[in-house]
Design a protein around this nucleic acid. Sequence first.
DNA 1: ACAGGAACGCTAGCGGTGCTAGGATTGCTG
DNA 2: CAGCAATCCTAGCACCGCTAGCGTTCCTGT
Lengths: 190, 190
Amino acid sequence: MSTQGRRERERAEREQAIIAAARDLALAEGWDAVTTRRLAAEIEYSQPVLYSHFKGKDAIMAAVAVEGFAELANALAAARTSAASPRQAVADVAAAYVAFAQQRPAIYDAMFTLAVDLPFATQDVPTDLARGFAELAETVRPVAGDNDLETFTETFWSGLHGLVTLMRSGRLRRPGHDRRLAVLVDRFSR
Amino acid sequence: MSTQGRRERERAEREQAIIAAARDLALAEGWDAVTTRRLAAEIEYSQPVLYSHFKGKDAIMAAVAVEGFAELANALAAARTSAASPRQAVADVAAAYVAFAQQRPAIYDAMFTLAVDLPFATQDVPTDLARGFAELAETVRPVAGDNDLETFTETFWSGLHGLVTLMRSGRLRRPGHDRRLAVLVDRFSR
DNA sequence: ACAGGAACGCTAGCGGTGCTAGGATTGCTG
DNA sequence: CAGCAATCCTAGCACCGCTAGCGTTCCTGT
């Protein structure tokens, strides 16, 4: 009876180990370094074990992304609720978003640039992703004026995403990043 | 004497054929379908020939991206110069930018999301890329107010880039795209 | 306690990738 | 026309994601 429970628990732990290994390896050396062989070696099992937990490498990346959505939502919530004023909240949340992307570039990639086949319309991904989006929406609500809030939020989000991706890929020079962020916040706070 | 000229010309033509094949294949089936073997078959040469023209697959993608920069700059210039008013120019150029990205997604990827090792600080890439950027800058100049023009332009560009990438990766729903673009243009035109 | 069976994880391998070493063939040159 | 240099191809390397098939181990019912 309890043996089954133990096995399930061990299975869950191993699955978590796979996700953690993928995450750590991606953060340390980038997603190119995350191969199924290295992942298998990291968790001290053979390759095929990975496929008893996940459909494929993409699914593993998606699992890492899911964790990322939760982290990002938390970071945004913290920034928003600790802000002194609604306008300051916009700046703080924007800064938190950018900081998240810069500190965990590999995870940000998994969330927003790679792994297109994420279960976007099902499962628990929308939960944390929607939470993050809701944080953004609540943040800009006071400054949205008579714009449709969802559209306004999406556009603001796009601005942040564009800044993050263009800068990290070298299309924007690192200096001036704060000023660009300030311009974006300014345009969306009036 | 002229034989050498002919050979050089043939070589240049073959190089162009490689770029064209890569471009067409990427547009038709995505970059994953662009393998060195298929590319070699397409130009009816063996694989190693590719490496006598380009350092590797990345360099081929970079060459496609370079062509893309020129196309994009032309499209933006056309939109800007044919606009009725400065404010309309912002909307038209933004629409042209988004249209370019949507009609040639693979090329846009090569330009802005993949191929990080583009010769960004050397060679002729900056020429066309800078031309495109300059078009954007000229477009938003009348509405930039007392903002630093370069910073302002980069931020606007980021907004466009974010809209394009988030929508194509499924993070934004297709309907509402025009409204989001309108919001972006509005925020940067006041 | 023990036989039967199911679940499990391994080894080995498939087809594919980007890339390269080496030799054969071609074509120019003195 | 001999010799050389450039050119291009065959074959293969190391690696990738993924899977078939087989031993082993462990749980189960009698």
